[in-house]
Each structure stands twice: as structure tokens, then as C-alpha cells.
Design a protein around this nucleic acid. Sequence first.
DNA 1: TCAGCACTGTTATGCGTCATAACAAACACG
DNA 2: CGTGTTTGTTATGACGCATAACAGTGCTGA
Lengths: 262, 262
Amino acid sequence: MVGQNPEPGAEPERPPSRRERARAATVDEIKQTAMGLMREQGTTDFRFSDIARLMGMTAPALYRYFADRDELLTGLIVDAYDDLGEAVAEARDKVPLDDPGARFVAVAESYRRWAREEPVRFALIFGLPVPGYQAPEEGPTTEAARRAMAQLKALFYEAAQAGVLRPPQLHDDDGVIAGLLAEHHEPTESPAIDGPPIPPETFQAMLFCWSNVHGFAGLEAYGHLEWMPQELRDAIFESSIRQVAEVAGLPEPLAAGPSRED
Amino acid sequence: MVGQNPEPGAEPERPPSRRERARAATVDEIKQTAMGLMREQGTTDFRFSDIARLMGMTAPALYRYFADRDELLTGLIVDAYDDLGEAVAEARDKVPLDDPGARFVAVAESYRRWAREEPVRFALIFGLPVPGYQAPEEGPTTEAARRAMAQLKALFYEAAQAGVLRPPQLHDDDGVIAGLLAEHHEPTESPAIDGPPIPPETFQAMLFCWSNVHGFAGLEAYGHLEWMPQELRDAIFESSIRQVAEVAGLPEPLAAGPSRED
DNA sequence: TCAGCACTGTTATGCGTCATAACAAACACG
DNA sequence: CGTGTTTGTTATGACGCATAACAGTGCTGA
């Protein structure tokens, strides 16, 4: 580690000094520049020399802020998770609490939009590890992923609490899934997804929703659906998530306004 | 291009000479070795020097067979598409034609299994382009993708022909989707997916199935579901695809034996 | 005030990789 | 057996990551 706070236990009260603020700004600029380059080229690759040149520095100077490529990548991945989580949570919370159906639609749409607008970051967090990148075990990326996924779980939790969740239409013959879920982690506070526990069948429904939305978003983000016009993709996606929500036992959206803003 | 057949129009009848066979074998060995390295490291990266060393050659010799890294990558991508297509078709055709429900289950399971067993190849074809790789426009990869996706479409086509396909439960308010589909490409022979045309609502159902299976497969292949035991993943996946098949209007599978073999 | 030190940047350098050039051996074939 | 193609080699150039050694800046405390 290079650019971290002194030690995790050394008086976190102290306000950031002038130097620390400058340093943080530079760290941020480096990450922004790296993301800009990646977006431009459409790949998860970048060159230190390019970043440095764009910032009016020389390449070795960057090593004052990140120990190596991996540390910079880790930072970018954490940021991406956080950004996705924020985008999803923000879209969700624009819809009133008493309309879980519409809240889910908002989550699904923002997830998809984020993937489409930020395919590189989407790949960064949901793709195969970047060549040469070794993810830190149990590191900050795992934690960031939990936070992001918690947003979807929260939605189902609220709906379940409100008692508006119908039993999902998903088969669970002999209660195998419920059994396994109950057995391995308590009433389903999975280690990968933060948040309060939800009943097994709701958890199953949540996964169903997630994989569906994720699948469409991934295919679209990487250009595998480009042969259909966006209008059609939009219509098909909306139809899909409506259906998925119904299967999951979520109530019909009350306010049926798609929150398009582009 | 370097290692291609002489010209696409020069007497394709001639049987492969001894040298041509040797060359083809070497090309294949290179690809195998490259894939081995990628699998080992779990990334889509490889070094010419490593491949050469494993083959008992020096790196520049590889340029006799592939013009550059991109050409080798293109070969690997095409192979991956073909292999996925074959795996899916083979699994599907093990199930009798008169059992489309079970045929879909077989397709979904083989798709998922392939992704899990070959995450690198899955990333190669369904992920963001490999750093530095520029896909040839309208090239062999696009064509290979069409062939692979045609396998799923064929399944729906057969079921539709047999008249056992119920109308899918997918909303299409005002027939927007059907309209757009009809408008943009005839009765839905999409440019991205080969095969005979199918009715719009069937096409929509097919996409729904695909994105769902793909989403789960992708999440699992990249380790995002590793926090649940495989037993549970299996159960949840099977439950999901059953539900998806039902939504898509496919009949219940008759022979309900999951074709596990590992 | 000014000496000392931490911080941030530079140039110089080593190593590994992609890719090409120039050359040598092996092979097919008239 | 001799000639041209094929397939391999070594030598070389360009470039990127990363470290080392060094220089300028500004905070800090006797």
C-alpha cells in the first residue's frame, strides 16, 4: 500500500491537512484520467505513461500514489461498485416506499442504464479479472460488492416488511432451496450481500430478478444486442422486468411512468 | 492474414497435403496452448513467449502461423463460439424432439455448464473486448456468434412448428414489440441470429430465456455466486429455468431427469 | 530565521514483451 | 541433385512497467 491513511487506528478525528487534500485530489484525478482513457478505448487497459501525459506529469510520479497497476485497478473497481450502488439506490429512492413494484422497475432500469453507459466499469466489476490483475483476497472490492448488492436486497426487505410480497411463482420442490438456504446461512443474510435477513423464498426471487436484469444488461452493454434498435431493446427490457417482478411476487407498479431522462 | 487457406476461390477440392496437415496441427496446438495458459491464469491474457516455450519453440516462430496477437485471439474467439454452439446443440439433441420443455432445460444447463467450466472462453466471447484487441468488422467472429445463437432459436422454431408453444406470458402493451420486430426485420430473422424466422412473441420469449440463462451463467462463471454452495446454486438455477420456460410458453418437460454427468 | 525532513516530482536504468528483419536449416519436387 | 518454399533461428527496435537515484518545494520546530 502507498496512498492509504497512515494506520486504520491512528486518530481518524484529525481533519485533513492541506497536503492530504491535495493528495486526495491527485489520487482522484488519476482515477478519473484512467477511467477516461478506458472509456475512450473501450477496454479495461491503460498505460501509466498516457495517464501521466494527460496530467502533465511523468509516469514514475504516479507510483507516489499507487504502488502498482493493481492498486490503481482496485481503486477503480471499488469506485465502480460504489457508483453502481449509488445509482441504483438513488433511482430506487425516487419512488415512494409504498410502491415496491415501481421501485424494482427503477432499480432494474438504472442497473441496465449504468451498464450501458459504463460498459467498461461494468466489465471491471462483473467481468473476468483484468489480465495480470490479482484481486486482493477478502479485500476492499468484496466489501464494495456487498454494499452495492445490498441495494436490491433492501428493496425486497422493505416489500416483505410491508407485507405486500406475494409468494413468488418459483418452484422449490421438496423445499430443497429453502432447506439449503436455512442450513448454510441463517435466515439468509448471505455473506456476499449486506442487509437485513429476508425469507428464503424472497431471497430466491431476488436472485431470479438479479440474474435476469444482469443478463440483459450484460448482453446489451457488450454490444450483443446491437442488431436491434434501441427502441425495441427498451420495450423488450421493460416487458421482461415486468414479468420478472410478477414472478418474484412484487406488486404491480402503481405509477407506471418509466423514468427515462436521456 | 497469414495462416489462412490460399484463396477462398482456388480449387477447394484438393486434399490437404502433408505440409498443410502439419501446419493445421501446429495452428491447433498453438491455440490449445494459448487456451491452456489462459485457463491456468484465469485471464484472457497470454504471452507469445510462454506459448512458444511450452511448445519448444521461440516466440517469433509463432508469427509464421498468426500475423499478430489479434489474429490468434480471433481464432480463439471463433473456436469458443463454435464450441459453445456444439455443446448446446449436442445437449439439446440428446432429448427427443417431442419434448421441447426438456430440450430447453438441456440447452440452459449446458450453456451454464459451459460458462462455468470455461469462464475464460465465456469472457472471450461475451465479455468486453480483450485489451488491445480490435475485432474485425463483420468478420468471422460475428458469423460464429450467429451460428451459436441459432441453436437456441432452432429449439423455439421446432416447438412452434409442432404447435406446442403456448403464448408467452410476456406483456406487449399495444403490440409495440411485435410492431417493431415486424417492422425492422421481416418475421424475425434477426441479423444476429441465424435460422428460420419465428413469430415475434416467440422471439421475445427466446430473448427472455437467453438473457435469464446468460445472466445466471455469467454471474456464476465469474465467481459472483461462490458464496453459496454449488448444491444450492444448482437448485436455484433449475428452479429459475423451469419458471422461465413456463413464462416463455414452453410445455412442461416430460422426462424430468436433470442430465448431470459430473 | 533557518536547519532538517517529508513529500512530490524528475531523469536514468533494467527487464520483459510484441513485432520485424536477416539469416539458416529442412523439405518438396522437377 | 538443385531450386524454391516453408519453418525455424538469432539479432534488433520500440514500448510499457517498475525501481533507483536525485532534485526541488514547503512544512515544522529549535
